[in-house]
Design a binder for these strands. Structure first.
Lengths: 107, 107
DNA sequence: CTCACATATATCTCCACGGTTATACGTCAA
DNA sequence: TTGACGTATAACCGTGGAGATATATGTGAG
């Protein structure tokens, strides 16, 4: 089940968490340690963010010995893209309606 | 100046506020009263949400007598679309790199 | 002018959430 | 087995922000 818009927006709203996700997108799979080194917050904080990202379906984790590797799940962004497209679509259709109206008024 | 990703995500993260914005996208310009009637929260709450949406550049307001009409500013969504595309882009380029690597290993 | 109406602002409360430190859990090395 | 390491969980704290109620501001009607 894909995450709802609610979950996606809420999860990506936090700057620290979004930075972690962006890093995973840009640089691919990373260990918790590597992410912590750049995150500017404590390791437990990073783990918590990763937990939420995982719940939202935005990342996967892969255990290897004592390390955990996280990677971005880009597919999870689809609902976001759909939503923005939908909103833009409404705008355009209303614009078309307006055009129609003006055209009819012109006659 | 277009709103930053931070502001956009944060502003759209709240369900009530996002619902107001969606309504403005779907149905065009609306008064505060009309929005309040559907929002499920008090009028002051709606006004506050509209204030934040306006700060984020997501809506415009137009005063007409004692009413204020709000409408969606779809252009403000552009940074969001860019961001998602960028993230997806990183994913694809890394995928290409992987393909290259595998191809080279194959030889 | 006065009153009703539409919206905005002020003020307060409450709670979700991000942060921390401390600690538990699992894994590798010696 | 013991101890160091990597990560996750627990427990707590402080704050931002969403909500409500009360009130201020501005505008049209009579």
């Amino acid at each position: 089940m894909p995450a709802t818009h609610d979950v996606l927006f809420r999860t990506l709203a936090d700057p620290t968490r979004r930075a972690i996700f962006e890093r995973l997108c840009r640089q691919g799979e990373q260990t918790v340690g590597a992410l912590t080194a750049e995150a500017g917050v404590s390791q437990p904080a990073v783990s918590k963010h990763l937990g939420l990202l995982k719940e939202a379906g935005l990342v996967r984790d892969r255990h290897e010995g004592r390390q955990t590797h996280y990677s971005a799940q880009l597919g999870a962004l689809a609902p976001l893209m759909d939503w923005t497209r939908e909103m833009a679509g409404f705008w355009e259709s209303r614009f078309d309606d307006l055009e129609d109206l003006l055209k009819r008024m012109d006659q």
